[in-house]
Simulated assay, not measured.
Amino acid sequence: MQTLPVEQLTSFLREAKDSGVFALYYIDLTTGLRRGELLGLKWSDIDLEKGDLRVQRQIGRIDGKIIEMPLKTKNAYRTLPLSADAIDVLVQQRRKTGNSEWVFSSPTGGPMSPDSVLHMLHRVLKRAGLPKVRFHDLRHTFATLALQNGVDIKTVSGMLGHFSAGFTLDTYAHVTTSAKREAAKTMGNILSGAV
C-alpha cells in the first residue's frame, strides 16, 4: 500500500488539471471510490442539490470488452456526501460531458476504460515528478488522510464500502497507531497540568 503524501497532492492535482483529468482524480480523492465504481458513475447517480452521489454499479473489462457490472457486495452500494468543492468540480464536469450519461465518459460518450484511466494516472504522476502508484493507492490516500485528520473509523469504513470497521481498522492500522501516539501525548499534556 502506498499513498500520496499531502505535500505531493498539490503538484499531482495541478498536473491533473493541466492534463484535463482533474475532475476524475479529485472526485476519487474526495470519495475513496474504487476505480470501477468511479467509472460506473452516471449523472443519474449524482444529486447536486442534495450534494451526494450513489454508488450503484462498476465498470470492468471482460474478454476485452468494457462492461457495466453489479458491485461485488451489498455494502458497496452506498450514498456518499459531497463537499462544496466536489460539487463545483462536478458542475464543471457536467458541462464537459455534454449528452453522455456517464460522469467520466470516453471520447465516444460511453464509459471510460479502466486501463486508460490507469495510463492517464501514470502519465500525470510522471509529469508531476512523483513516484508511480496504483490507482487503488488513491483510495488508500483518501482513507489515510481522512483518518489522520480525525474522521472516525466507522465513517471511513462506510464511505469505502467495507463490510466492517474491523476490516478498515486492520487495513489502516499504521494510521491508527500514530493516532494512538498523538492521543497519549495529548492526554499526557492535559494530565501533567493537573498534577
Results as ranks from 00 to 15, higher is better:
residue 95 R to D: 12
residue 90 L to T: 03
residue 98 G to L: 01
residue 103 V to M: 05
residue 101 E to P: 07
residue 93 Q to W: 06
residue 108 T to N: 14
residue 93 Q to C: 05
residue 79 T to C: 09
residue 104 F to A: 02
residue 74 K to P: 06
residue 79 T to F: 06
residue 103 V to H: 00
residue 100 S to G: 05
residue 76 A to F: 03
residue 79 T to A: 09
residue 94 R to L: 09
residue 100 S to Q: 04
residue 77 Y to P: 00
residue 79 T to Q: 14
residue 101 E to M: 13
residue 93 Q to I: 08
residue 88 D to N: 07
residue 69 M to T: 14
residue 94 R to A: 10
residue 101 E to N: 12
residue 101 E to W: 08
residue 90 L to G: 00
residue 78 R to G: 00
residue 108 T to H: 11
residue 101 E to R: 14
residue 88 D to E: 10
residue 100 S to Y: 04
residue 104 F to I: 09
residue 76 A to R: 00
residue 107 P to K: 10
residue 72 K to M: 04
residue 81 P to H: 02
residue 95 R to V: 14
residue 97 T to M: 14
residue 97 T to Q: 09
residue 101 E to A: 14
residue 75 N to W: 14
residue 76 A to G: 05
residue 72 K to Q: 07
residue 74 K to H: 07
residue 71 L to Q: 00
residue 68 E to H: 15
residue 93 Q to E: 09
residue 70 P to G: 08
residue 99 N to R: 10
residue 108 T to D: 08
residue 103 V to G: 01
residue 92 Q to K: 15
residue 78 R to N: 05
residue 87 I to C: 08
residue 73 T to F: 07
residue 68 E to M: 15
residue 91 V to Y: 08
residue 85 D to K: 14
residue 81 P to F: 03
residue 85 D to E: 13
residue 88 D to P: 05
residue 68 E to T: 15
residue 94 R to K: 11
residue 70 P to D: 15
residue 106 S to E: 06
residue 76 A to D: 01
residue 84 A to I: 08
residue 96 K to P: 09
residue 75 N to K: 13
residue 90 L to H: 01
residue 102 W to G: 01
residue 98 G to T: 02
residue 93 Q to L: 08
residue 90 L to K: 01
residue 93 Q to N: 07
residue 88 D to S: 11
residue 73 T to W: 04
residue 70 P to S: 10
residue 95 R to I: 11
residue 108 T to W: 15
residue 106 S to P: 00
residue 77 Y to A: 06
residue 87 I to H: 02
residue 77 Y to G: 01
residue 98 G to W: 05
residue 83 S to W: 06
residue 94 R to S: 07
residue 71 L to R: 02
residue 68 E to P: 07
residue 102 W to P: 00
residue 81 P to N: 04
residue 97 T to W: 10
residue 85 D to W: 12
residue 82 L to T: 02
residue 71 L to F: 00
residue 70 P to R: 12
residue 108 T to C: 15
residue 81 P to A: 04
residue 81 P to K: 04
residue 108 T to Y: 15
residue 107 P to W: 09
residue 68 E to C: 15
residue 95 R to G: 12
residue 73 T to E: 08
residue 109 G to D: 02
residue 103 V to Q: 01
residue 71 L to P: 00
residue 96 K to T: 13
residue 98 G to F: 03
residue 75 N to T: 13
residue 99 N to D: 10
residue 109 G to Y: 03
residue 105 S to F: 11
residue 70 P to A: 10
residue 96 K to F: 15
residue 74 K to A: 15
residue 88 D to Q: 12
residue 70 P to E: 07
residue 109 G to E: 03
residue 69 M to W: 13
residue 94 R to Q: 13
residue 97 T to V: 13
